[in-house]
């Protein structure tokens, strides 16, 4: 780390849990942020500012006027630009130390995202729909990549960490794809700073995972109600009937048994 980096990150390096070694870990880390809306904006700003070495930014959308009330990574001048381009420019202006790769594709279009997840140290899910969330979770389960999941609508936000270890619950343990009430910020509305709160919580959880400090939200779901300003934490466990992680675990177990008997 050079003198400029030591100064830039000094206010976190002085925290004994982080120190120089934690900062060096951050600088060696690779995180993929999927969705550069309200959550992805807040999360990626803090991850870049904190000096995460390599950020992969994934989003297929373009900046629209109605995004700017909550998606603080983009400005009025970016309207019409690809979100990944707008995000890359703003994050590099904030911290030129960070290497940024962009993927301007929807999850289903290409396996580039799957490969990016497989090589990442953590995934920040800030996507805005259930099909994408389930697809991300499936890849995180099969690749064993920690998934820092956040969501927000109206005045309510949720954060949790899935797939951190083989014994962690996965996103599919909690939510079923039979969900009917799939609501989006675009259709239902959301109070803007809530996305900053939830996105920032995702950034904190990601930094903790990368450095290896504190207690992860793995196995817990944190819910924030901005209207009552109450936070509640519920316990999450693996669903023994989960169609995603149960199947993966069984395949793995069979693979290990086969390997042992060879």
């Amino acid at each position: 780390m050079n003198d400029e980096q030591l100064l830039r990150y000094s206010r976190q390096i002085m925290l004994p849990e982080i120190d120089v070694s934690g900062q060096e870990r951050l600088m060696r880390s690779r995180v993929i942020v999927i969705g550069l809306g309200g959550l992805g904006s807040a999360a990626s700003i803090y991850l870049a500012a904190a000096g995460v070495g390599h950020l992969v930014l994934a989003d297929a959308d373009h900046v629209e006027l109605a995004n700017l009330q909550r998606q603080i990574l983009h400005t009025s001048r970016d309207i019409g630009r690809a979100k990944v381009d707008s995000a890359r420019d703003h994050l590099l202006a904030l911290n030129p130390d960070v290497t940024i790769t962009t993927i301007k594709k929807r999850f289903k279009d290409d396996d580039a995202l799957e490969k990016a997840i497989a090589t990442a140290d953590a995934v920040v899910d800030g996507s805005d729909n259930f099909p994408t969330r389930f697809a991300i979770n499936r890849v995180c389960v099969t690749t064993g990549t920690p998934l820092v999941s956040g969501a927000a609508i109206r005045y309510e936000g949720q954060v949790s960490v899935f797939c951190r270890t083989q014994d962690s619950p996965c996103y599919r343990c909690l939510y079923s794809n039979e969900h009917i009430a799939a609501e989006s910020c675009a259709e239902t509305g959301v109070v803007p700073p809530l996305l900053g709160i939830i996105g920032s919580l995702q950034a904190i959880e990601t930094l903790k995972l990368l450095i290896g400090i504190g207690e992860s939200l793995e196995g817990r779901l944190l819910r924030v109600n901005a209207l009552t300003m109450e936070c509640r934490t519920s316990t999450l466990t693996r669903d023994p009937n989960c169609p995603v992680c149960r199947t993966h675990r069984r395949d793995q177990d069979e693979g290990q048994t086969a390997a042992r008997t060879r």
Partner: peptide, 25 residues
């Protein structure tokens, strides 16, 4: 699911939460 399902006993003061599914980002 981690208690006794529908047979989970309740005592005064308990809170039942129907968890909303949230996907907005």
């Amino acid at each position: 699911r981690d208690r006794e399902g529908l047979d989970t006993a309740l005592v005064p003061g308990d809170v039942i939460t129907i968890l909303p599914a949230v996907s907005g980002g």
